[in-house]
Design a protein around this nucleic acid. Structure first.
Length: 570
RNA sequence: CGGGGAGUGGCGCAGUCUGGUAGCGCACCCGGCUGGGGGCCGGGCGGUCGCAGGUUCAAAUCCUGUCUCCCCGACCA
């Protein structure tokens, strides 16, 4: 179906009233997708062609990397999810069948694939291998948003590797990383891979593949040779100009108490004492979920706590202390500090132990000036702050950029094989858990990212590899006209040499056809009108940049010339 | 879950405050003109105003409840 007159392509002049993200607006306007409920989207024919382009690229590269394609169900028994402890996740949709049996709608397929492998694999001779499928995932998201960027139902390519040991996993992981590089390179997207948090998935290592764009929900810290999710990024802090010199710094005597009535925030203290925010110490009382208990985390006043880094570097869960605990252990909230506190202090790496700071005095309406870590309080070091733009890595300042996560790779280890009993016998007859990895890609996010990255004021501009059709022919003139006949001829010739072609043969005006073509974003547009017939040439416009091809393309032998031009497009 | 906003022909909106014959633009259908950037003229089709209950002689409009959708935040294997 490649005649526009017969294609269901409901384009709109106006974006949905409440849409914000570029991809949301344009994918709806261009007739690619339609919404049926919050976070629930249908792919219309043109949009589905793009999705299938992405799927095919992924399939080819994962096959080449040794992945074996299969298919697992979305509807699954609850039992394996109970065994892995994931049945209680809020995002997991649960239901019952007519007999009252508990079922879930899978949000990913570790439980299923691992259950099968547990039944099938007996010996080290059965390993290694990797499996994958493209399948719908269901997630009861707290807040779907931005069109197809974050939905409750979506298709994912999820792959799983099964190895005898960590070394095998590492080899598989590296192979998948290389395959991912090829996949994202082929899509034509701007992308990079970053270190990422292993999250609640557990495991020992993870990378995310990011496509930078304004609608992205992730923040990535970037510097030459460095890219990390802000969730886990570390960097050298920017220095703070501490002037004038603070009392007590390097000198005799302890900190000096100053009256700071009502100054409960960094901002207020900073202004009152005329000390930059970075010259303050911010004390964050927490309760760690192990023998450490009540603890104060101290970061520079101009820095923010990174809760994920804190959790990872503590190696334990924690919660903010409540006001009663703070008063009992330290003093009035707003005036707490590490000096004189009889609780453990974790000092962020960015705090200079030789410098003098302002900190809360653990006394209402008072702060201490000239507080020097080490001299005035004992501490252990921790890296717990969120990096800021301008911090440096190996001397290079970082920037922080919004990005969409389009893929990820995880070293799972035995997180799923142990609870589900996926084991094998090694050469010595010893039973060992299978070592696993998991690897996801969201094709819909790749589609949306491509829209976001290359759209202009006229509409979408697909990378050649993802476009729903290679070439669009705009046929001007009435039905039955010579122009339309010539367009039909060109259409057949292009198809004959293997290009996919969308022919706009609708009885519409030229303005409407050109506008729709630019909205839909096919990389190359050929126009056949009266002028073309008179000059023997089709006008050609490259969508990216809306560049007209000088002189057009001679209709005589046009197919080869078009194919040649098409291969040069982005 | 917290905060904000919105439900009126297919789409985008006005009307609601101050109750009194449901409107506009686009799209769509028919006829004609036009034919290289959303063109013009004429004639049409299409809406239980999200849903339920209430107040009233009278409800899109006031009251109560409820459902749905969007945005910000929290959350996000």
């Amino acid at each position: 179906m490649t005649r526009l007159s017969q294609l269901l392509l409901p384009t709109e002049r106006e974006p949905p009233a409440d849409a914000e993200a570029i991809s949301h607006k344009l994918m709806v306007r261009a007739g690619l997708v339609r919404q049926i409920g919050t976070g629930l989207w249908s792919w219309l024919p043109a949009g589905w062609r793009v999705h299938q382009k992405v799927v095919q690229i992924i399939r080819e590269e994962i096959d080449a990397a040794g992945g074996q394609e299969m298919l697992m169900p979305v509807l699954q028994p609850a039992d394996p999810w109970r065994k892995t402890g994931r049945y209680d996740i809020d995002e997991l949709l649960k239901l019952k069948d007519r007999k009252g049996a508990d079922l879930v709608l899978a949000m990913t397929h570790e439980e299923c694939v691992t259950s099968h492998v547990a039944q099938v694999v007996r010996s080290y001779r059965d390993l290694p291998f990797s499996l994958y499928h493209f399948q719908v995932k269901e997630r009861d998201e707290p807040r779907p948003r931005a069109g197809v960027l974050r939905t409750r139902e979506f298709i994912m390519k999820d792959a799983y590797t099964f190895d005898r040991d960590e070394a095998g996993l590492q080899a598989h992981y590296d192979a998948y990383a290389a395959a991912y590089d090829r996949i994202f390179e082929r899509t034509g997207l701007e992308w990079y891979s970053v270190e990422s948090d292993v999250g609640m998935m557990g495991g020992s290592g993870a990378h995310e593949y990011m496509a930078p764009c304004p609608a992205g929900e992730n923040e990535v810290a970037l510097a030459p040779g460095y890219a990390a999710n802000v969730e886990v990024a570390s960097a050298d802090p920017q220095p703070v100009a501490l002037a004038p010199p603070l009392p007590g710094v390097g000198g005799v005597g302890g900190p000096e108490s100053v009256h700071t009535p009502g100054a409960t925030t960094v901002d207020a203290v900073s202004r009152l004492l005329e000390v930059p925010a970075g010259g303050l110490l911010k004390s964050l009382p927490i309760v760690i979920d192990d023998e450490r208990g009540f603890t104060v985390v101290v970061v520079r006043g101009d820095h923010r706590l990174n809760e994920i880094k804190l959790t990872n570097n503590l190696g334990a869960a924690w919660r903010p202390a409540n006001p009663d605990e703070i008063v009992a252990k330290l003093g009035p909230p707003g005036f707490i500090g590490p000096v004189g506190a009889s609780v453990p202090v974790l000092l962020d790496d960015a705090v200079d132990a030789e410098a003098g700071y302002v900190a809360g005095a653990n006394q209402a309406d008072h702060h201490l000036r000239g507080v020097r870590p080490g001299r005035d309080f004992d501490f252990e070091r921790i890296d717990a702050r969120r990096v800021e733009a301008g911090d440096t890595v190996a001397g290079h300042p970082i920037t922080i950029q919004a990005a969409i996560e389009v893929g990820n790779i995880f070293q799972l280890g035995t997180r799923y094989s142990e609870p589900l009993g996926a084991t094998y016998l090694d050469e010595e007859g010893v039973q060992r858990p299978i070592v696993m990895g998991s690897y996801g890609i969201g094709p819909a996010r790749i589609v949306a990212a491509a829209v976001e990255q290359f759209a202009d004021e006229k509409g979408i501009s697909w990378p050649r590899a993802l476009a729903p059709w290679d070439v669009e022919i705009v046929a001007l003139g009435k039905p039955g006209s010579d122009e339309l006949a010539a367009a039909e001829g060109l259409y057949r010739d292009l198809r004959a040499i293997g290009l996919s072609v969308l022919l706009d043969d609708r009885p519409a005006g030229p303005g409407a056809k050109f506008a729709d073509a630019e909205l839909l974003g096919i990389p190359l547009r050929l126009t056949i009108g009266r002028r073309s017939l008179e000059s023997g040439r089709a006008e050609a416009q490259i969508r990216r940049g809306l560049q007209d091809v000088e002189g057009g393309i001679p209709l005589e032998g046009a197919a080869e010339a078009v194919a040649e031009l098409w291969r040069t497009l982005p």
